[in-house]
Amino acid sequence: MKTNDLIIQTTTKLVFFIIFLFSIHIFFAGHYTPGGGFVGGLLMSSAIVLLLLAFDLKTVKEMLPVNYTVVTAIGLLISIATAAGSIFFNVPFFTHVYDYFNIPLLGKTSIHTAMFFDTGVYLVVVGVTMTIIQMIGGDE
C-alpha cells in the first residue's frame, strides 16, 4: 500500500528528526535525569515506526538502509565488552568507572563506562524493536 499523503509525509520527516534528537538527548541525560538506554531506544524506534506509518516499508528501507539484526548484535557486543572489560583491570566483572573531564564547548562532563553499556542497551532495543516490526510488517 503506497500512501501519498503529502502533509503527513512532510510533517513526519520533521517530527522524525525531533524525536530522534529527543531520543539522543534523553539517552545522554539518563544518568542524571529520567531517561536512559531503554527509553532512548524505544523513542528512536517509535520515530522509525512513525516513518513506516507515513511511508511504506520499502521506502523506509531505502531511506534507512540498516540491517537491524546487525544493530542488535553490535549493541549486545558493546554491552558485554563493557562489562567484560573490567576483567582486564583485575576487578570483578561489571565494575564501572567514571571521571570528570573538561571538554571544550560542553564544559565539565563526566565520562562513565556505564554510558557505553547503556549505548549497547540503546542499540539492542532499537535493533530488536525494528526487527520485530519489520518482520511482522513484511510478512505476507
Binding site: F38, L42, V125, V128, T129, I132, M135, I136
Partner: peptide
C-alpha cells in the same frame, strides 16, 4: 518494572508471531 516492561514487550511480540 522498567526491565519487566521491556521484557514483556519482547514476549508479547514473540507470542503474537
Amino acid at each position: 518494572i522498567l526491565t519487566a516492561i521491556v521484557i514483556s514487550f519482547g514476549v508479547t511480540a514473540f507470542s503474537l508471531v
